[in-house]
Write a protein that binds this DNA or RNA. Sequence first.
DNA 1: TTGAAAGCGCTAACAC
DNA 2: GTGTTAGCGCTTTCAA
Lengths: 338, 338
Amino acid sequence: MAKRSTTRRTGIADVAKHAGVSHATVSRVMNGNFTVDPVIAQRVRESAAELKYYPNSVGRSLALGKTDTIGVVVPDLGNPTFQAMLRGVSRAAAKDGYRVLIADSSEVLSEEAILAAEARRRCDGVVLCAPRMSDAELQDLASALHPLVLINRTVPIENTPSLSANYGQGIQELATYLVGLGHKRLAFLSGPPQSASNRLRVDGLAQFVAEHPDVELQTLSGGVSFAEGHESVERILASGATAVLAFNDLVAMGLLSGLHERGVDVPGEISVTGFDDIPFARYTTPPLTTAAVPITELGEAAWERMKAVLQEDEAVALATTFSPRVVARGSTGPVPLG
Amino acid sequence: MAKRSTTRRTGIADVAKHAGVSHATVSRVMNGNFTVDPVIAQRVRESAAELKYYPNSVGRSLALGKTDTIGVVVPDLGNPTFQAMLRGVSRAAAKDGYRVLIADSSEVLSEEAILAAEARRRCDGVVLCAPRMSDAELQDLASALHPLVLINRTVPIENTPSLSANYGQGIQELATYLVGLGHKRLAFLSGPPQSASNRLRVDGLAQFVAEHPDVELQTLSGGVSFAEGHESVERILASGATAVLAFNDLVAMGLLSGLHERGVDVPGEISVTGFDDIPFARYTTPPLTTAAVPITELGEAAWERMKAVLQEDEAVALATTFSPRVVARGSTGPVPLG
DNA sequence: TTGAAAGCGCTAACAC
DNA sequence: GTGTTAGCGCTTTCAA
């Protein structure tokens, strides 16, 4: 038996009694079923309005077998990239009457699978943003999570669409751009080793170096945050590189800030690139050259795929890749002389 | 009758049958009720594991009359301030086993009340972040929304706690700081007229000016975004002010960027302050002087109040105010000579 | 066109 | 300690 709160909300039964009809009829009216006599329908609507009746969505969900809600699991709600994804998913889903339940794993790997499973239990499907778990674990979980959509993680799983940015291509284009400016000594400030998108960058750069034997590339362990970029200034300067590819814009901005404090001229003495093109990138000093990842669109596309899976659409695109676009701004320039 | 999908998930009845007990016993075991014989409990757990059974949370919610979910309504998911609030609420709620459903009104005023009401129908309570609706509308809605917690909006409503930053005090402290540096001609780049937090700043500045007759203050209509800050450069320069109080950090950063492009030295020729202390504020060039609003803590506190209301705690603090703290950085300096 | 009744999956009071 | 049963609030089939 249900615990009833002190002041019960008005239910379908109250409206039925007030309008002098059965609750089935009220249900029909509330759902716009036109088989109801217009006069009665009107009376029901008036009763509903008078009693301030709104259908209880839990009861509705139970009867309908759907919640009109999807779960979105993100590694860190404080990260602008995931915020933008979330916003894309949320706004797109809202247009179709769906809501988003958020699950923030706070970068705790062991929480991720649990959160995802829990989200799935409450929702009609789940979107996993850049999941940190292993391929094997993801494969295992997939069937329990279905409908499942992956963002920035491509794993071939049946019925599981994925949307991702082509980080490998993006970083290659940035490198190409730098080399075009005359740079031969590059440094890559890498992200977390377990990050799939970091691996894509590493692989992309490896390919780039293979194709450009005259270019020297050093990889320095970096991180994902301002602070980590800021802290790597000394190591970057010691590396002798004339251009730095930072893992992302945050790291690049931290680096820019650190270089500025040390009195190093950017791009006069060293060029810096970011990755993502977060909103702030254009407002750094100098403005940051970066690879723009259409991250909000990725989120929107994730919802479109989810919708298709929910509608059991047979023709769901499986893996979709978005190409980053180099945005040349002031933080990069010709290689310094001498 | 419920629409059943092609592959039904395993329900409590399946486990009951498999373990040879009643579904009530399964329920007891799943809820850690210790009145069950340990041997039987173990058998049930094994059956549940084997069948990969997880309780359906919609059924659970209906029976228990609660969803363990709260709704958070924000005016704009793209705004760092609301992102930080959301993160605070979400993480704090998660620690107590609650999840957050997001509702982004995209600054569309007419959507706000609808979204809030809809969120309330699906959740155990709602948190309204900086609601744009009128006091009257908010009053009307409050009882339907209860349990309700307000962030950055103080309206005396029974049972409705509110958490807010003291924007009036914060802007006065910034003004005091600037005047301490010798500035006498200030400009305020204001936010949206309908924003409650803007009004608090305006009122705070009015009081400040009243107490400092030697200080001249001009108010220029600004906005909330980078772009709007960037666009106001000319008007700021034309105003003749030696120090600018921007509505928030975003506007200040846009302004900083515009001034830099125009070759105006900050703080040599003009001082600029922001408001909020968003994560990027310390990384601008020069680093931004601002009033730090403990926004994530506001979100966390909002959850604590919500929890108290949900537990029908009699002693819920009603209006809690957080004081911003001036963070002096490089974007402000002594008034220029001559 | 409408109402009675079953059922969605679960919890909890009650009886044994 | 365990099963039976009655709901939680809604949708939908079926019969009238």
